[in-house]
Design a protein around this nucleic acid. Structure first.
Lengths: 209, 209
DNA sequence: ACCTGAACACCGTTCAAGT
DNA sequence: ACCTGAACACCGTTCAAGT
């Protein structure tokens, strides 16, 4: 059924770069990482297989662009969650951001995977690294706001960012891989899981009494 | 230079399955995930490109076997670290296990990435899921031993396993991606980074005084 | 400047055929 | 039972050529 095939326009596209990124993202979401193909993205954008090389050095550069856009989206949802939490205290605010972060990963598993995949390494794609750091900034801001309320220690903010981010990253990874301890996994929805992890982090492993 | 090419034996191999897993692991470590090839593994094992299909359903099944072996190795190094920590108290023991875990990831970055990659999904490869759970058991045991010393709360052991594992996974991921906050990254070696994260986890975010 | 079309080397997978 | 050899459809990348 050739009528269903993507129609070829015979010349330029307007914004081919963006069209290729969108097409690759769609391929990733629909067919997984093995389904992302430079030729397939070109087909979906209606250009020849060689056209992408005018905009990307190769397949890895296209994947880096997809990951970069995803980091921008992640930053946005985290910042919005922090904003919506308004004048809430420390734990509530961190919970809100954590739920947004893990929620993004669960909503876009293949994209979240790609962000941390070896395929496009941050060191080889500077703008990707910058986008990832931007997401970290959103988390960092949330921690600082929580500390100003007095419900979170103001000591060691950098270590706290590191631990907070690592924990969110790890929670997302374990959920996506379905490697949760059984009893935890049954605590659907995801927000309950996230809040449970945040409570442990809030209180710490060492006894308080 | 055909003399350097792998010699073809004309028939069976003894343990072709293991040879293919070893070859794929070597390709992964040396050339990254894009360098892992079913045909390449077959070449390295000295068999034809069709031979692997006698032992694996396809490329993904071979990757799953590589990841599974890596999970077994990870479990082993964590269990050994716990054993070596002997009668140490809670924080010390958890630190030792954490250092072993993250050390494994740093020593074998491509392998650690593959373990959490989307390519071989645990739900499609039951033995891979079992191996991953085995690694979790090693962490779980370490937490239980720490709790018995009284230096770690005995409450919520499952949530603690979840948080501990997530934190290690996230620390490893952030280190491998070089997304650490600058000040933390400069705190080489890795063990210092890990201990710093463990201290925050131990004390918790909420003020104690 | 931006894209096409053909080409090259390579890949995953299948399958009849060999021993 | 285990492997080979050829084949098919596909891929990433390059490059002369078109407009």
């Amino acid at each position: 059924m050739p009528g269903h095939a993507a129609r070829r326009r015979n010349y330029h596209h307007g914004d081919l770069r963006r069209a290729l990124v969108d097409a690759a993202t769609a391929l990733l979401d629909q067919h997984g990482p093995l389904g992302v193909t430079l030729r397939g993205a070109a087909r979906a954008a209606g250009v020849s297989q060689a056209a992408p090389y005018r905009h990307f050095a190769g397949k890895e550069a296209l994947l880096a662009a997809v990951a970069e856009a995803a980091f921008h989206d992640l930053r946005r949802v985290c910042a919005e969650a922090a904003r919506r939490s308004g004048r809430s205290g420390g734990l509530r605010r961190l919970e809100a951001v954590a739920e947004a972060y893990v929620g993004f990963a669960v909503a876009h598993p293949a994209r979240y995977r790609l962000m941390w995949a070896p395929a496009p390494r941050a060191r080889d794609h500077p703008t990707l690294g910058a986008a990832a750091r931007g997401a970290g900034d959103a988390l960092s801001a949330a921690i600082a706001e929580s500390a100003s309320s007095g419900e979170v220690t103001g000591e060691r903010p950098l270590e706290q960012l590191f631990v907070f981010w690592s924990l969110l990253h790890g929670v997302a990874g374990l959920i996506l891989d379905e490697q949760l301890p059984h009893e935890i996994r049954e605590a659907v929805p995801v927000n309950v899981i996230v809040r449970s992890a945040m409570r442990v982090l809030f209180e710490g492993f060492r006894p308080r009494a």
